[in-house]
Design a protein around this nucleic acid. Structure first.
Length: 263
DNA sequence: ATGGCCAATATGATTGGA
């Protein structure tokens, strides 16, 4: 079972790259973020043509998340619980059946939070607390659970080319990292860090200032695994080459292989 | 993290992103 996450920065702009990448990487389940379109405008047929079931939670202009799955969804839930006022489309959860029982996958687009002296940062921290509450609840089920997406969190200095440049940024502030660590400490495993000690593993390079050319990247797209999922983790990787393609997203896909068979 | 970008919006300027 291969599961991937990718912030596409507009699915309409990225549809050709997405189809090429899917054919190449052959993931079974994909978490997408920043689809930036309403549900009726999502290019559902293109993905269905490759054999994927499609679940979307979009909105006009901004945000938007989706799930693609080779296996039918037994259940889909839109929106992170805990705040009825929150109308951002940043969370979708799906459940599929495997030979080992239920597998739960959430596509997450955690708020950026900049600038930090505004309500945007308050919203980010509140969202992180709600995500931890969600994780606590789902971990009690003792199922394989994958929480994958754009966390907008640089976990440690090793996850940025120039960490000093991010001091004071909402992605790297101590409070942000504290909340992220509290989430992981509930019992989740960061798949990339579990499989590699390499420095310089990045998933995002800004479009500006030649960031890609200088490899001035950060690692902010994460797959967090519950213990039953982490026990079956066999491999993980970052598809860095996708950043060299025509009209790239500023993020690249990240994937894991789990020793979990289809039903 | 800005010199340099990109995407969506009735759009030729503004907002949001990271």
């Amino acid at each position: 079972m291969r599961i991937a996450t990718w912030n596409v920065n507009s699915i309409k702009q990225r549809i050709d790259s997405a189809l090429t990448w899917l054919a190449e990487r052959q993931p079974d389940i994909v978490c997408l973020q920043e689809t930036k379109c309403v549900d009726d405008a999502f290019p559902r047929l293109e993905f269905e043509g490759l054999g994927y079931n499609v679940a979307v939670h979009g909105q006009k202009t901004f945000n938007g998340v989706a799930l693609l799955s080779k296996f039918p969804f037994d259940e889909v839930k839109n929106g992170l619980p805990g705040d009825a006022q929150d109308d951002h489309a940043r969370f979708i959860e799906g459940v599929v059946s495997t030979a080992h029982g239920a597998l739960r996958v959430a596509s997450i687009y955690l708020p950026n939070g900049n600038p930090p002296d505004t309500e945007k940062y308050t919203y980010k921290l509140g969202w992180m607390k709600r995500l931890a509450a969600y994780a606590r609840d789902r971990l009690s089920l003792e199922e394989p659970l994958i929480m994958a997406g754009d966390y907008n969190v640089i976990p440690t200095a090793a996850d940025a080319k120039n960490p000093q440049a991010w001091t004071g940024d909402a992605l790297f502030l101590p409070k942000t990292r504290d909340e992220y660590r509290a989430l992981v400490n509930l019992g989740l495993t960061d798949a990339i860090r579990a499989t590699s000690d390499d420095p310089g593993l990045f998933t995002f390079w800004d479009y500006q200032a030649g960031a890609w050319q200088k490899n001035n990247g950060i690692r902010i797209d994460h797959l967090l695994l519950s213990p039953p999922a982490a026990d079956r983790l066999r491999d993980a990787g970052i598809d860095k080459h996708v950043r060299t393609w025509e009209k790239p997203s500023d993020h690249v896909p990240v994937w894991i292989d789990l020793e979990i068979e289809a039903k």
